[in-house]
Design a protein around this nucleic acid. Sequence first.
DNA 1: ATCCTACGATGGACCAAATCCAAGTCAAGA
DNA 2: TCTTGACTTGGATTTGGTCCATCGTAGGAT
Lengths: 137, 137
Amino acid sequence: MSDLLERLRGRGWRMTSQRRVVAEILDAGDHVHLTADEVHVQAAERLPEISRATVYNTLGELVSLGEVLEVSTDGRAKRYDPNAHHPHQHLVCSNCGTIRDVHPTGDPLADLPDDERFGFTLSRAEITYRGLCPSCS
Amino acid sequence: MSDLLERLRGRGWRMTSQRRVVAEILDAGDHVHLTADEVHVQAAERLPEISRATVYNTLGELVSLGEVLEVSTDGRAKRYDPNAHHPHQHLVCSNCGTIRDVHPTGDPLADLPDDERFGFTLSRAEITYRGLCPSCS
DNA sequence: ATCCTACGATGGACCAAATCCAAGTCAAGA
DNA sequence: TCTTGACTTGGATTTGGTCCATCGTAGGAT
């Protein structure tokens, strides 16, 4: 995943210092799921003048480019998952909120029978497994 | 599900006119998923002085009592699902946001192998199927 | 190497959802 | 019916996010 910057440049993404810092922060944490605000804090350590709007804009673009996934497991702040090229689901601790990437067996879409699809054209399934992590249980 | 009020009283839930109205609104819509604000609007039709804080408090209690499920499928307002005693998953239109309750086959928890559980004690799995509804596709 | 200009960044205003809090009210047990 | 602790109120506050007019600059053109 560390060629994220390469891929973006190759797609004609205009490279600015702000975008580079945001992309690098996401790229650095492969199975970390930061909030926009956490990204902003980390970015500001390297680029003190970066604005929140820029972080939001950049994250939004990375999401629509398909380079990053938006996950909202708790109804609070959205989190950004840099692992977009590797299909996976999430395991969340009901107590402390920790998130882990997991890989269930089978194809989740296959579990939804035709007569339960109501004419929808399915594109994907997101699974959130919930439970208590070792240190909370 | 229409004995929600009974169950709550039986559990020693202090009954007030505000709580009754909120519970009845949820109880009335079996496969509807209202936002807190929509509940507030409907409640205010019957009880003009009811405050937002009370609606939020009451919804929060119904959730922790396990009578209602909190679902956040779009990162915007949370929605409240009165169908908590009937296990089901959600099918969401990526375009218009419509939500349908669906019943996939099999046990979603069974699809997560032991070596992908990282010592967690699993309690449930939430699946969100995404796609386009008939009128949006 | 420099110039242009369209695209990106800024920051402060604004917004929606949700929570907090001090003061007032009331359900239900004694 | 009285009492009291639990509930409600509404306004302030917090949180997460968006908008927009203006300024700045990346990178192609010359």
